[in-house]
């Protein structure tokens, strides 16, 4: 029994999730001690609803990084598909529910994702270059062809969905209230589906396999090109969903304010232990990493740190976090050497 817990502990110590969880916990406790506000129900709900959009983006970015690629186009992709959808629905004076908006955005997202997938999968071009290029193309279509401006009103269905809530948390001390948006359900569903897909389908295992070794995956019989193609379509759809949710929650469509999010999202995914070289990482770690970034961005104010310091903390977090995991790799190699030594002596 003791042996079992020991090996379990050993296994855990080799993974990233426990560390990031401890860091997260320490940060939360620190904020709680300093402000007494962190674990209040409304703050927790605020953080949960702030996690929805970055969380969805992170799921997509996570899949791409695990497959050995990288995607910097998802903010532009999401902006384009949601802007096109909103604009079209406004122009046709659509009065129905939010579903049409979601389906339409997902469809556009799938097409744009296929664009990435075509060049990365079929032409085997480096993902960084393709997504850099496509993000520029998407921006160009949005701002040039659609002549995008800020839309201060959005269709009624989207507006209603954005303001409807699952429940409302009220802080008994301050009396502040926070809504848990219905959109959080969409996030939970996508998270669950992607988790199941990565764990229980050959397609999902194929993403890991390709990230581990593309040549081996091909020889084992995985359809490498097809898997990548479909994966980028999925990522496009997830990003578009995030875009719709963001517009609904903000009650306006701003063409450019999602742009530039890619760096922090990728940082969160990598902080959660996903190897930037592909093949390794868990969805749990990815979510913990993203949550850490979200809390730093939203809750520093509770620590009495002015919001203008937020980037200093995120930057330091990325450097320290990646530095620690780089150090872990070095240490793991040296413990392996020590083990070899012991074996030799025995």
């Amino acid at each position: 029994m003791e042996m079992k817990t020991q090996t379990l502990l050993k296994k855990l110590s080799r993974r990233n999730e426990p560390y990031i969880f401890l860091v997260l916990l320490a940060l939360c406790l620190l904020i709680e001690v300093r402000s007494g506000q962190f674990f209040s129900s409304n703050n927790l709900v605020d953080i949960a609803s702030a996690l929805i959009v970055p969380g969805l983006f992170a799921i997509g970015a996570f899949m791409v990084i695990v497959s050995g690629g990288i995607d910097v186009s998802f903010p532009a992709l999401a902006s384009l598909s949601v802007y096109a959808t909103t604009k079209y629905l406004l122009d046709t004076n659509y009065q129905g529910g939010v579903w049409v908006a979601i389906v339409m955005a997902l469809a556009i997202g799938a097409v744009l994702g296929a664009f990435n997938g075509l060049f990365i999968g079929y032409f085997k071009l480096p993902a960084l270059i393709v997504t850099l290029g496509s993000s520029s193309v998407f921006k160009g279509i949005m701002q040039g062809a659609l002549n995008s401006k800020q839309l201060t009103t959005i269709p009624v269905g989207m507006r209603e969905w954005g303001t409807s809530s699952l429940f409302i948390a009220k802080n008994p001390v301050s009396g502040l209230t926070s809504r848990m948006p219905v959109a959080s359900l969409a996030f939970v569903i996508v998270l669950a589906l992607v988790f199941l897909m990565l764990r229980y389908t050959m397609f999902g295992r194929g993403i890991y396999a390709i990230g581990g070794s593309e040549a081996s995956a091909h020889r084992a019989g995985f359809g490498v090109v097809k898997t990548k193609f479909i994966m980028y379509i999925m990522v496009g759809m997830i990003a578009s969903l995030a875009g719709v949710i963001r517009v609904c929650m903000m009650q306006q469509a701003h063409p450019t304010n999602m742009l530039g999010m890619e760096m922090n999202i990728i940082a969160g995914v990598v902080l959660g232990g996903t190897a930037i070289t592909g093949g390794r990482g868990t969805l749990l770690g990815c979510m913990l990493g993203t949550l850490l970034i979200v809390i730093v961005e939203n809750s520093l104010i509770l620590l009495g740190v002015p919001t203008s310091w937020k980037s200093v903390f995120t930057g330091a977090l990325i450097i320290i976090g990646t530095g620690v995991s780089a150090y872990q790799v070095i240490r793991m190699n040296s413990t392996r050497k020590i083990k070899a030594k012991i074996q030799e002596v025995v």
């Binding site: 060049f119 071009l125 270059i129 393709v130 850099l132 290029g133 496509s134 993000s135 520029s136 193309v137 998407f138 921006k139 160009g140 279509i141 949005m142 701002q143 040039g144 062809a145 002549n147």
Partner: peptide, 14 residues
């Protein structure tokens, strides 16, 4: 629209 530049530019890259 001058915004087309980023479209052209991404297109040229690809």
């Amino acid at each position: 629209s001058s915004y087309y530049i980023s479209l052209i530019w991404g297109g040229v890259l690809i």
